[in-house]
């Protein structure tokens, strides 16, 4: 029996393709409350690194809420809050630079994957990411003693290990990681849809950030379905893509400049 050939692990980007999963972020609605950041860290076992490591610039979060300033002091104007996570680029700059193919493009899900067990920690991908959304595990933060309390025998107890999400790998030291669009939830929804003999429909998958957003500013869904909410929002005239001129074809749309937008 001839075994089918494994395709090469590289992004085969076709111009004009919509992608499969996408996010739309309405910056006119975002209040900068950081609920998405907290929810993301809890869903995806992103560790808290503590004060000392943060001082070295090693703090870990798969998304951050950015706020920029425009103009010269004192006539500064703030831009709207802008949550930034991995843009799941269709043509991703992080992928071709990985020497061990640990960051590859998923052809079926159209996402950028980070394969933790392949990653050797060269950090090329993070250096090549124009959105600066990749974070590196500088130590085994999950078993850092700052998370532990000694019990009566002096043995360290890690109470936070009880809130780990079992569907997500706890990353080890020396591994790069980034937003996955909550691929564990995508898989769960696809599995559920398949057991009911149907396609995944809009609303089946909600990543942790979109679920936690109290203002409903983060909308997730199928980009290849023109009727889905996220497709309509990404076609909106308020929608822009971050650093679109680099040709990375990001899957996250930012909406701003509505009638009440840009108040700052």
């Amino acid at each position: 029996m001839s075994s089918p050939k494994i395709p090469e692990f590289k992004a085969e980007w076709k111009e004009g393709e919509a992608g499969r999963w996408g996010l739309a972020i309405d910056m006119d609605l975002c209040t900068g409350c950081q609920a998405c950041v907290a929810a993301c860290s809890m869903e995806n076992n992103v560790p808290f690194v503590g004060e000392k490591e943060s001082g070295y610039g090693r703090q870990m979060a798969w998304m951050r809420v950015e706020r920029l300033w425009e103009g010269q002091y004192p006539e500064v104007k703030t831009t709207p809050f802008q949550p930034v996570m991995c843009q799941q680029c269709g043509s991703a700059p992080c992928e071709p630079v990985c020497p061990v193919f640990a960051t590859v493009h998923a052809e079926a899900e159209q996402l950028n994957l980070q394969v933790y067990n392949r990653c050797v920690g060269t950090r090329y991908c993070a250096n090549n990411c124009p959105y600066v959304v990749r974070v590196f595990n500088w130590a085994d933060f999950a078993i850092n003693p700052i998370h532990a309390n000694p019990d009566k025998d002096g043995k360290l107890v890690f109470p936070l290990h009880n809130q780990f999400n079992p569907d997500v790998t706890v990353r080890r030291r020396g591994v790069m990681e980034k937003c996955t669009f909550c691929i564990q939830r995508i898989h769960k929804a696809e599995d559920q849809a398949k057991s009911e003999n149907r396609e995944v429909v809009d609303g089946d998958v909600t990543p942790a950030c979109a679920q936690a957003c109290p203002a409903d500013a983060i909308i997730f869904g199928r980009l290849d379905d023109p009727q889905s909410r996220v497709s309509k929002l990404s076609q909106d005239k308020r929608a822009v893509h971050l650093l679109e001129e680099l040709g990375t074809q990001p899957r996250v749309s930012y909406l701003s400049g509505g009638s009440h937008g840009n108040l700052g």
Binding site: A106, E107, L113, V115, T169, T180, Q184
Partner: peptide, 9 residues
């Protein structure tokens, strides 16, 4: 079925 992300995430 042979995609990395099917099992590794």
């Amino acid at each position: 079925l042979i995609e990395c992300g099917t099992c590794h995430y």
